[in-house]
């Protein structure tokens, strides 16, 4: 069931949408922010709110890379594997993280702490190689810096906002 708060926030967003279904992506983003990911039940509840079929909403949810249809860890590490980071060793850092965390890109550590994902160019190529921790960009990466970052993140109970303070950021 959508909570009263979720209903209220969705209804407020509807004010500047010409029709309900236009809210599909905003709605998925909004519910994911509170619930962490989009479970089947969440999808059905939102589809009902938007007057859409669940299967149509799912075709949208799975199209967009920042909508998660599986649970993710406390921190999502999205490592850039596009060309500017590649030139500075970005792909090697992604492989290093796979070995360090004992998971493949696309997976979550068994302790639920980290989800590792590859991502396209993050638009911060002056600081390559980059990754995004939740919403916080961390640039000028090296293996050493990543090692210190992982230790610091293990003590961060909440997802990071875009301007979160980090010692090793």
């Amino acid at each position: 069931m959508l909570s009263d708060q979720e209903q209220g926030e969705l209804t407020a967003l509807l004010a500047h949408c010409p029709d309900r279904r236009s809210l599909a992506i905003d709605g998925l983003v909004l519910l994911q922010r509170g619930r962490g990911w989009i479970a089947d039940d969440t999808l059905r509840e939102l589809a009902a709110f938007l007057d859409m079929t669940p299967v149509e909403l799912d075709s949208i949810a799975t199209f967009y890379s920042r909508i998660y249809r599986r649970p993710v860890g406390r921190h999502v590490l999205a490592v850039c594997d596009s060309v500017s980071c590649f030139l500075l060793g970005g792909e090697r850092l992604l492989s290093w993280l796979e070995r360090r965390l004992g998971i493949r890109a696309g997976q979550t550590t068994p302790d639920g702490l980290f989800t590792l994902l590859p991502t396209v160019c993050l638009g911060a190529c002056d600081r390559a190689p980059n990754l995004l921790v939740d919403e916080r960009l961390v640039g000028d990466l090296s293996e050493d810096k990543l090692e210190r970052l992982l230790t610091e993140l293990a003590d961060q109970p909440d997802r990071l906002g875009p301007e979160a303070e980090l010692v090793h950021g």
Binding site: S82, C121, C125
Partner: peptide, 9 residues
């Protein structure tokens, strides 16, 4: 999202 592009940001 063009790779290598960060001017608008």
């Amino acid at each position: 999202m063009e790779p290598g592009t960060y001017k608008d940001r």
